[in-house]
């Protein structure tokens, strides 16, 4: 066979093989997780969920590999280098929790140009060639007021606990809460403090503002601050308002105690760290040849009165309520976006 003949033959083989690999077969594909930080319980839970779900997927032969990489330092330049290394290592898809929404765009573009699927989640990137699984933080804030409007139809005064000042997430959730108050004008925000998403900070801040407040009917929060608020209000011997919780284990435990003691009712909402597994399945679906919109929205994890015990039992001490997504969940999210 001449060289030319060989070339033609191999092209023919490649053409014949191509449609097969584009259809419903990702068993030879490799997916990598590029993560910029692992220093808190949320991120630890995120990595554990990834290992668990992708480990099973690899064992079942859905994908060939799903390796997690975390940069040693939370720096965009280092993560850019990490992504470039992944390109060299021949991964077919990169699932990305980015250190910066913009500073990785160059590396992400290189990956796209090399034919790699990039799916960013939680910390999303703005590069148009990548997919984004974003959290609708605004809706998370608004839904709290909506819940309160059902619980307390006559309305009342609200205390708002915000997160870390100057962080995008804090602004978004707060904007959503204010939108909700506009929508349900029977509520009025009478006070606002920064709890930095930490129980101790929230407790101090709430204790400080309480004496200046009239009676409050509800407390809207951002997660990680509900337990501290409850402690401060209990210490001031004021009637307990409806405090919206944020899925942390101590918050759920306190809620459970109150529920058993005096039938206390509230709800809890936050983002499940298992969103990394949703991103994994979305990447797998894209590799599978599915048409997927570039911008997807993660459903947030909401805990209500009736499924409190169930969620509390599954949550580790000191951890965050979590949910691991399945392939079917990912398909639902993809379909929902169309």
């Amino acid at each position: 066979m001449t060289f030319r003949g060989m070339l033609l033959a191999s092209v023919a083989v490649a053409c014949a093989a191509m449609p097969v690999s584009a259809l419903a077969d990702t068993s030879d594909k490799k997916i990598a997780l590029s993560n910029n930080y692992a220093g808190n319980s949320w991120r630890q839970a995120m990595l554990t969920s990834w290992d668990k779900v992708t480990g099973e997927a690899v064992k079942a032969g859905v994908v060939a590999a799903a390796d997690a990489f975390t940069t040693a330092e939370n720096q965009a330049t280092e993560q850019a280098a990490q992504i470039q290394n992944m390109i060299l290592q021949g991964y077919d898809a990169i699932v990305l929790n980015a250190a910066s929404p913009t500073a990785l765009n160059g590396a992400v573009k290189e990956a796209c140009d090399a034919g790699i699927i990039v799916v960013s989640f939680d910390g999303v990137v703005s590069e148009p060639c990548a997919w984004r699984i974003a959290v609708d933080f605004k809706e998370m804030g608004r839904s709290q007021v909506e819940y309160l409007s059902k619980k307390l139809p006559e309305g009342g005064n609200l205390l708002e606990i915000r997160g870390l000042a100057g962080v995008f997430v804090d602004d978004e959730i707060s904007a959503g809460i204010h939108e909700g108050v506009k929508q349900f004008p029977q509520f009025k925000i009478v006070g606002s403090v920064h709890g930095d998403w930490a129980q101790d900070v929230a407790q101090k801040a709430v204790a400080g503002i309480l004496p200046s407040l009239p009676e409050i009917a509800g407390v809207v929060t951002q997660g990680g601050d509900g337990y501290g608020a409850a402690q401060a209000i209990a210490a001031a011997k004021r009637p307990m308002p409806v405090i919206v919780m944020g899925n942390r284990e101590d918050e759920l435990k306190w809620w459970k105690e109150q529920k058993d003691a005096k039938n206390y009712e509230t709800m809890s909402v936050s983002i499940a760290p298992g969103v990394s597994t949703l991103a994994f399945w979305v990447a797998q679906q894209i590799l599978d040849g599915k048409e997927v919109k570039k911008d997807l929205v993660v459903p947030f994890l909401r805990i209500d009165q009736d499924n409190l015990e169930q969620n509390l039992a599954k949550t580790q001490a000191g951890g965050v309520a979590n949910v691991e997504y399945t392939q079917a969940d990912a398909i639902k999210v993809i379909e929902g976006a169309k």
């Binding site: 330092e73 720096q75 965009a76 330049t77 280092e78 850019a80 910066s100 913009t102 500073a103 990785l104 765009n105 160059g106 590396a107 573009k109 703005s126 590069e127």
Partner: peptide, 14 residues
């Protein structure tokens, strides 16, 4: 030129 955009903390490691 490589990252296409900037960040106030982009080069702290340098």
């Amino acid at each position: 030129g490589l990252t296409t955009s900037a960040d106030a903390n982009i080069a702290l490691r340098y």
